[in-house]
Design a protein around this nucleic acid. Structure first.
Length: 686
DNA sequence: ACAAATACTATTTTT
DNA sequence: TAGTATTTGT
């Protein structure tokens, strides 16, 4: 029955098991069914972007595409996993065979596979941001730049500058001039360091995150490799395209097969990674890069109530650079988002906790609620309050679990065993020993390079009584780890035992950290060998910083605390946005650059559009600083919003309320709605 | 000369 | 809070 007339007929249904037309709106359907040539989907927040991608994957497979030859690039590995999970439940298990992951992950796969052409050993190691910083720290000491009279950038700043220079494809000078002008006097030293850093990485055959992308582009200059790589992609799909930078855009171009089957999805109004070189205009330049790209726009929002979208649209109106679309809510109007002014941070925390407890009584579970903030530290006070009230929560964003000092300490021991040439890990391991500082460690390292057996530390020439015992202990541990073939979990448990006293001495909060280590051993059970554990951890660090679970209630999904950046692509029924202050959002660092201000505005836009049913924006009037209290102003972005957009809530002291309204309470504040008695506000129900 | 203890200060966001 | 500068101690 295969007929050459098929093309002329309306989209044929009988071929598909899934009835796409009934499950998707017109624009979504168009994106899912799009066949030849490049496609660009501009999808506003909550317009079913992910849904469209999922159904497209299913549709392509149904149409006969080999799942293995579909490449799905996402921003995080979590997003890739979720998408393929959902696609599998929509269609079937074939969807799991889709190639996918982050740009970094896919590049690292290619580089391992074509290591010869790339000029690297098969087992090159990937260093994460913290390693890169440690390396710069070491180099800075080597060049004696740490003993200068004028202020020199600290290691994290140095790493930021170097990485920005690569990702934004600008010279170090330009980066320093535009963002770090206080260090312009040191520009030559910074250039020296960046050069030494690059050399070290080449000599030791390690790559940082940026190298993974840059080296892949270099690799694909090889025509044979390029043909092979392209040849294995039948379709390329890219999510969150607005957050790609020029390097990633080039990768997409290189990955795309000759048939031009590439589809990218994104929202220029949600571009929030400028600092990493992303340019929200990139997505609009896609048609220049891929001629004849079909453009599809999704504007119907299924997520948020009308009132929430009004606030979102009002935010975008303030942008200097206009965005082309406006969101239309497909839902009811809903309640007005709340604007809550609190006396100080403590009161804000108590307000949030109180509201969350009230919501829980109204059958809105913790898992349907999230608290968002600009900076990771903005939730510190709230975390204390949540702990006090025994409310389980999980925090995303900020420092990662596997980047915490104590976890890195433990991992360094593993790294030394896998790769005795890993100077960074040695440095870390050695300086943990009492009596060994940077200098002695460097001397020992020097000796190590010529040593026959690097683990027989005791035979080194420079043994002093001061640290002899410690060094012997370390030697013992490393030999144990090397000789007995242990699983990663067993090895970690050995290291844990060795590290325990060190940890107790080094950290005041050792009980918490030792508990983390136990949890880490549990996680390590899932890994085959040391090397796999280390590489996966570098590319996909364990995101959650702290999980606090109340015993017995483990099945209830915990409350989510998240930075706005980490909340991208997610949604919750009720969303609290705390610390909505001028100087926080927009960040105080961005106020003199209009482009940066626009980015902060988009950030706020992302935060607001995470909410499905109700949004609470709060800010404290007074902040307790180290120099005394400081009066603060709400975010400038909220200024133009009248009471018809945001409803001001008053916090009423408990003592002024009828006794019944609060079940258990210390001096907790309670919101009262200005709308009178019918309000949904907390406390009214119970 | 180097390590350890203490005081101070400046703080984004992520692969 | 953690990273850095300064002081104290061995």
């Amino acid at each position: 029955m295969k007929r050459f007339v098929l093309k002329k007929e309306p989209v044929s249904k009988p071929e598909y098991a899934i009835n796409y037309a009934s499950l998707l709106n017109e624009a979504q359907l168009e994106a899912v069914m799009h066949d030849e040539g490049p496609g660009l989907v501009i999808a506003g927040a909550g317009t079913g972007k992910t849904r469209t991608l999922i159904y497209r994957v299913a549709r392509l497979i149904e149409a006969g595409a080999d799942p293995n030859r579909i490449l799905l690039l996402t921003f995080t590995r979590r997003a890739a996993r979720e998408m393929l999970d959902r696609a599998s439940s929509v269609l079937d298990e074939r969807c799991r065979k889709v190639r996918g992951g982050t740009f970094h992950f896919y590049c690292s796969q290619l580089l391992h596979q074509y290591h010869e052409q790339a000029g690297y050993p098969q087992n090159f190691t990937i260093i994460d941001t913290a390693d890169a910083q440690d390396l710069l720290h070491m180099l800075r000491a080597e060049f004696k730049f740490d003993k200068l009279k004028t202020r020199f950038p600290k290691k994290s700043t140095l790493q930021n500058i170097i990485s920005a220079s690569i990702n934004r494809q600008q010279s170090l000078y330009d980066i320093v001039e535009s963002g770090y002008d206080q260090f312009l006097g040191h520009i030559e030293r910074i250039e020296t360091l960046a050069d030494a850093y690059r050399q070290y990485k080449e000599q030791h055959r390690v790559m940082d995150f940026d190298d993974l992308l840059v080296r892949t582009i270099e690799l694909l200059q090889n025509e044979t490799v390029l043909e092979q790589v392209r040849g294995r992609h039948e379709h390329v799909l890219v999510d969150e395209y607005q957050d790609t930078n020029a390097i990633q855009a080039e990768l997409v171009r290189l990955f795309t097969p000759a048939n031009g089957r590439v589809m990218v999805v994104g929202d220029d109004a949600q571009s929030i990674y400028r600092f990493r070189g992303a340019d929200h205009k990139n997505i609009m330049r896609f048609p220049d890069l891929f001629k004849g790209a079909k453009r599809i726009t999704l504007e119907e929002n299924y997520r948020s109530t009308g009132n929430i979208l009004q606030v979102a649209n009002k935010l975008l109106e303030q942008a200097r650079e206009k965005y082309e679309k406006k969101l239309y809510s497909m839902r009811e109007t809903g309640d007005l988002p709340a604007l809550v002014k609190t006396a100080d941070t403590r009161e804000q925390s108590r307000f949030v906790v109180q509201m969350i407890m009230n919501l829980r009584e109204q059958e809105i579970s913790l898992g349907e609620t999230a608290v968002l903030f600009r900076n990771s530290r903005d939730s510190f006070d709230l975390e204390i309050e949540l702990n006090r009230r025994k409310i389980p929560f999980i925090k995303y964003g900020g420092q990662k679990f596997s980047e915490a000092a104590h976890i890195k300490d433990v991992l360094a021991h593993l790294r030394v065993v896998i790769n005795p040439a890993d100077a960074l890990a040695w440095n870390r391991v050695l300086t943990l020993i009492d009596g060994i500082g940077p200098k002695t460690a460097a001397d020992l390292l020097n000796w190590l390079e010529s040593a026959g057996n690097p683990y027989e530390l005791a035979s080194s020439g420079i043994l002093s009584d001061k640290f002899k015992t410690g060094l012997l202990g370390l030697s013992q541990l490393l030999i144990d780890l090397k000789q007995n073939e242990l699983t990663p979990a067993e090895a970690l448990s050995q290291i844990h035992a060795y590290y325990k006293p060190v940890c107790e001495k080094k950290f005041d909060d050792h009980p918490k950290r030792l508990k983390d280590l136990e949890a880490f051993e549990g996680i390590a059970v899932n890994y085959r060998d040391y090397a796999q554990l280390l590489e996966e951890l570098a590319l996909d660090p364990i995101e959650a910083t702290a999980v606090e679970t109340e015993p017995g209630k483990e099945d209830e999904a915990p409350l989510v605390l998240s930075t706005i950046h980490s909340a991208k692509g997610l949604e919750w029924s009720h969303v609290f946005l705390i610390q909505c202050l001028d100087g926080v959002i927009p960040s105080g660092y961005s106020v003199d650059d209009p482009d940066e201000i626009d980015e902060e505005l988009r950030l706020l836009y992302v935060a607001v559009t995470r909410a499905k049913d109700m949004l609470y924006i709060s800010y404290p009037v007074l902040q307790h600083g180290s120099f005394g209290d400081v009066f603060t102003k709400p975010s400038r972005f909220l200024e133009g919003m009248g009471e018809q957009l945001l409803e001001p809530w008053l916090l009423v002291d408990e003592s002024e309320l009828p006794a019944a309204s609060l079940p258990s309470a210390s001096a907790t504040a309670l919101p009262a709605t200005a709308r009178g008695s019918n309000g949904q506000a907390a406390g009214d129900e119970a």
